[in-house]
């Protein structure tokens, strides 16, 4: 360790340049090519393939999502239509049943009225006939009474 810091010292020193320099440069260049073949190319390929895969998958997923949204919209429309149709059917049915009910009610009412009328008429007729009978009976009786009274005189 005579002169360790001497620049360009013939034996040793911190700044001792020799064939180490070009050989190290060649070694690093070789390492660059080896690492390029063993590391940068294959890893780059894998990473870029994955990036492509992710990009295409994402695009596909977006496309599918759009399709799904479209389908969902269509389905919603269909559902709305179906609901409206069902509502209409229900309304129709309600109206129908209402009508039927009314008709049946009207029929029943008119039938009831008719039968009541008939009954009243029958009653009236019977009363009439009973009255007539009574009248004729009472007239007969009155005549009889009158006859008897007159006859006793």
């Amino acid at each position: 360790m005579t002169s360790p810091f001497l620049f360009g010292a013939t034996e040793g020193g911190l700044f001792d340049f020799d064939a180490t320099l070009p050989l190290m440069a060649i070694q690093v260049v070789l390492l660059t090519f080896i690492l390029n073949a063993l590391f940068f190319k294959p890893v780059g390929q894998v990473v870029e393939e994955r990036e492509d895969y992710v990009t295409t998958s994402r695009a596909q997923a977006k496309q599918r999502l759009a399709e799904v949204e479209k389908l969902e919209l269509a389905l919603r429309d269909q559902l709305k239509e179906a609901r409206q149709a069902a509502q209409k059917v229900i309304n129709d049915a309600e109206q129908d049943s209402d009508k039927l009910y009314r008709e049946a009610l009207a029929l029943a009412t008119s039938e009831a009225n008719a039968s009541r009328e008939k009954a009243r008429r029958e009653i009236d007729a019977q009363r009439e006939s009973a009255m007539n009978q009574l009248k004729s009976d009472s007239e007969k009786l009155g005549d009889l009474i009158v006859d008897r009274l007159l006859a006793s005189k």
Binding site: P4, A9, G12, G13, L14, T20, L23, M24
Partner: peptide
Amino acid sequence: EVGQHLYWQFGNLRIHGQVF
């Protein structure tokens, strides 16, 4: 040990062995 090297001699080329 500052500035001391393990010298390898190839012909008239001298290299620092410890670096390699």
